[in-house]
Amino acid sequence: MHQFSRRLFLGGMGAALLAAPARATTGHEFYCGLNCSGLEDNPPNAPTRAMLATYAAQGVRHIRLPGLWEHFQDRPMGPLNDAAVAQYRNVVTTAHALGISVLCEPCHNYGGRMIFGTAQKFGGGILTAQMFADFWMKFVTAMHDAPGVAGWDLMNEPSDLDGDTLRAKAAAWVDAAQNAIHAIRNAGNHLPVHVEGYGHSSAQAWAINNPDLHTLHDPLDRLVFSAHCYLDRDNSGQHYFWDEEVAAGDQVSNGRMSDNTGVERLQPFIRWLRQYGRQGNIGECGAGQRDTPDRAGDAGWLAVLGKTIACCKAEKLPFYYWGTGPDLGVGYPYGLEPRDGVMPPQWTVLKHYL
Score class of each variant (00 low, 15 high):
Cys311Asn: 06
Asp134Tyr: 12
Ala170Asp: 11
Tyr332Gln: 00
Ser37Gly: 03
Gly78Asn: 03
Leu65Thr: 03
Gly67Asp: 04
Thr25Lys: 11
Ala20Asp: 10
Tyr230Ala: 00
Ala150His: 01
Asp250Phe: 09
Leu10Gly: 06
Val252Lys: 11
Leu65Ile: 10
Arg265Ile: 07
Glu40Phe: 12
Tyr198Thr: 00
Asn45Leu: 12
Glu264Arg: 01
Gly280Pro: 08
Thr165Glu: 01
Arg278Gln: 08
Leu103Trp: 07
Met155Gln: 11
Pro211Glu: 12
Ala46Asp: 06
Ile208Lys: 04
Gly38Leu: 07
Asn281Ser: 07
Asp340Gln: 15
Gly237Tyr: 13
Arg274Pro: 10
Met257Arg: 01
Ala119Ser: 13
Met257Lys: 01
Val149Leu: 02
Pro326Leu: 12
Gly125Glu: 02
Asn156Glu: 14
Asp162Asn: 11
Val252Thr: 08
Glu264Lys: 02
Leu354Gln: 08
Arg6Gln: 11
Ala171Thr: 09
Arg274Thr: 15
Gly14Ile: 11
Leu154Glu: 11
His228Gln: 03
Asp82Ala: 15
Ala95Leu: 02
Asp340Asn: 10
Asp175Pro: 00
Gln120Asn: 05
Gln346Arg: 03
Thr324Tyr: 13
Ile208Gln: 10
Gly262Leu: 05
Gln120Arg: 14
Tyr353Trp: 04
Ser5His: 06
Ala227Leu: 01
Gly277Pro: 04
Tyr55Pro: 00
Arg75Ser: 08
Thr54Gln: 14
Phe139Val: 06
